[in-house]
């Protein structure tokens, strides 16, 4: 109980002093300083509300994936996305049924997310499906044989000024992006986050999944920009409401006309 109490106090203290949901721009110490003066910035502080900038790859790691294995090709052929070279009305994107968006696809969503840094962990709080992702920063190793989950098991560490996050333990039910790129439960990902200037984090994502792709996939680097003043709003995918929406709008829109 005592441990729990102290843990709670530590979390609340960290949150109270976190600059989350506040402007990310680092102000010069004195107003007399010009904007050309190097800004004081803690490169290990990524806390705040951010959003992926539009870029190559769209709502996913891109279409430039390595050659597929036969298993991966069969999965890709079965996926009918709403984006990319295979885009068609209707389709079978798992998120149309409110399945969890999963990782790494959630990184490429159009909604803001908050990075919360607390002792021993970095939390990523995504507006999309109101999802919390935990990255363990306490030095622990990846588990040897984790049970499959939608977001995997993540550990992180600082390599200089780059936050390096490794994740394993995925199920194979999600797509990597809106273009329908598949993955297996053998997938391992490495993310590298580096604050390249006061208002930009660069993300480099590597996907290693030998069951699906014949070599490692280095996704196109993406930039993440601050959203000062933006709050993370409640944005669940509600299956009952989604079903009704599909019945009234999505299905009529996707119906073949026999042209």
């Amino acid at each position: 109980m005592q441990t729990l109490l102290f843990g709670s106090i530590a979390v609340m203290t960290a949150l109270a002093f976190s600059p989350s949901a506040m402007p990310q721009t680092v102000q010069p110490k004195s107003t007399s300083q010009s904007s050309t003066v190097p800004l004081r910035l803690d490169p290990h502080d990524l806390s705040g509300v951010w959003q992926l900038a539009p870029g190559g790859g769209g709502q996913g790691p891109g279409d430039n994936f390595p050659p597929l294995t036969p298993w991966g090709q069969a999965r890709y052929d079965a996926n009918k996305p709403g984006y990319g070279p295979k885009a068609a009305p209707g389709g079978n994107d798992p998120i149309l049924k409110c399945d969890p968006i999963g990782f790494p696809r959630i990184l490429f969503q159009i909604w803001p997310f908050e990075i919360i840094q607390i002792p021993g962990r970095v939390l990523m709080f995504f507006e999309g499906q109101h999802t919390i992702r935990e990255i363990w920063m306490d030095g622990r190793k990846l588990p040897a044989d984790p049970e499959p989950t939608w977001y995997g098991y993540s550990v992180g560490k600082w390599d200089g000024d780059t936050l390096v996050v490794e994740t394993i333990g995925f199920n194979d039910k999600t797509w990597l992006g809106a273009q329908g790129q598949p993955h297996s439960d053998q997938m391992r990902t490495v993310e590298r986050y580096r604050r390249v200037d006061p208002t930009t984090i660069q993300l480099n994502l590597t996907i290693v999944d030998p069951k699906t792709y014949t070599k490692a996939w280095e996704a196109e680097p993406r930039l993440i920009k601050p959203r000062p003043g933006v709050e993370i709003l409640e944005s669940f995918c509600v299956a009952s409401e989604e079903e009704e929406f599909a019945r009234r709008i999505r299905q009529p829109a996707a119906q073949q006309t026999g042209k």
Binding site: G82, A88, A178, A254
Partner: peptide, 13 residues
């Protein structure tokens, strides 16, 4: 148009 930002794609429209 800029690319659509519906979370699942707008190819029906």
């Amino acid at each position: 148009c800029t690319p659509a930002t519906a979370h699942h794609g707008n190819s029906a429209y």
